[in-house]
């Protein structure tokens, strides 16, 4: 039997899951994360820690950096890469996404279309990373986890997220169409 025609293969691995399935799973895992680690789900804060560990690996020190000056941040950095729940979760996202794309046999290394695309991607990445740090979170830590914690800041974040997306899509059409 051809596995590509198997309805379970299609539903589980080939076709995108319905949004509602994703929403329910994200909520369940959010509760699980909070219960297991004591913190709500976050992604981009972990990436800043990865940056600090890489910097320490090449002989740098972030001890004097204001961003890492809190006791909690110092403790996370001292505990190390392999004992950080956020690190494990981020690695899980990468491995899981890779597994999913392989199972759907949709893996492809995409060609770069233009220098303009490269510049926009780098600039966009830097702006998102910087914005996520001065906003105390990304759309996971500040928006999803914020709202899930009944925090007003999550809703304020949502408002400006829409404003940013509006401006961003106008710029996109202006420069890429």
């Amino acid at each position: 039997m051809d596995i590509k025609k198997n309805k379970f293969y299609k539903a589980w691995f080939k076709d995108a899951w319905p949004y509602i399935t994703g929403a329910v799973l994200l909520s369940v895992f959010q509760i699980f994360t909070l219960a297991a680690t004591g913190n709500p789900w976050g992604v981009s804060g972990v990436l800043a820690n990865w940056g600090a560990w890489v910097y320490e690996l090449v002989g740098g020190s972030v001890d004097k950096w204001y961003y890492f000056s809190s006791e909690g941040a110092q403790r996370t950095l001292e505990t190390g890469f392999f004992k950080d729940p956020g690190t494990m979760r981020n690695l899980g996202i990468i491995v899981g996404a890779f597994f999913a794309v392989l199972m759907a046999s949709q893996f492809k290394i995409k060609k770069l279309k233009s220098l303009r695309q490269v510049i926009a991607a780098l600039l966009g990445g830097l702006l998102m990373g910087y914005g996520a740090r001065i906003g105390f979170g990304c759309n996971i830590g500040a928006l999803f986890s914020g709202i899930a914690s009944f925090s007003l800041s999550g809703w304020v974040y949502a408002l400006f997220l829409f404003a940013g997306a509006y401006v961003g899509s106008k710029l996109l059409v202006k420069f890429f169409m």
Binding site: K110, K111, M177
Partner: peptide, 15 residues
């Protein structure tokens, strides 16, 4: 639209 990310393929197709 190879190598183009969302929403560029959609906008291009519309046009």
């Amino acid at each position: 639209c190879m190598g183009e990310a969302c929403p560029i393929p959609l906008v291009k197709a519309e046009k």
